[in-house]
């Protein structure tokens, strides 16, 4: 269990590294000079978010909750963590329009991931059905 938690935290750190690499590549191409303090802050924030999403995946394995409840809890927790950090890091400026736009983007990206999983589960059920028919 502890090892699985560490594994998922590390996986989250991995994603934050990929994102930072993308950002740094963009900055490098523009010959930008960024203070180490700013970089440190942004990397810390994205590592926290990465670790959170890694560990939060356990919510979807908690059998006692229905998938709908799992999704609701995961979604609300994600918003509760992502928005304060984004506003603190100035990824989302503290203005009504920016926050609304940030929320819409968050929901769109979240929905894309959710649809991906739903598609995967449908395909899984289809594969299981095909093997049941074949076995007859």
């Amino acid at each position: 269990m502890v090892i699985e938690v560490i594994k998922r935290v590390m996986l989250g750190f991995g994603f934050s590294a990929i994102i930072l690499f993308g950002v740094l590549t963009g900055l490098m191409l523009k010959d930008a000079v960024v203070p180490a303090k700013l970089l440190w802050g942004n990397l810390s924030a994205s590592m926290i978010i990465g670790a959170y999403f890694g560990v939060a995946s356990f919510i979807f394995e908690y059998d006692r909750w229905s998938p709908l409840k799992q999704l609701t809890v995961h979604f609300l927790l994600s918003i509760a963590l992502y928005f304060p950090i984004s506003i603190m890091m100035n990824w989302i400026p503290l203005q009504p329009l920016s926050i609304a736009l940030g929320l819409i983007m968050f929901i769109v990206i979240y929905s894309i991931f959710w649809s991906g999983f739903r598609y995967y589960f449908k395909k899984q059920a289809e594969a299981l059905n095909a093997s049941v028919r074949r076995g007859r």
């Binding site: 229905s66 998938p67 589960f121 899984q124």
Partner: peptide
């Protein structure tokens, strides 16, 4: 088993 189905709320 007769068949599988993904329910509305995501259960198999």
């Amino acid at each position: 088993i007769a068949r599988f189905e993904v329910s509305f709320n995501g259960n198999l």
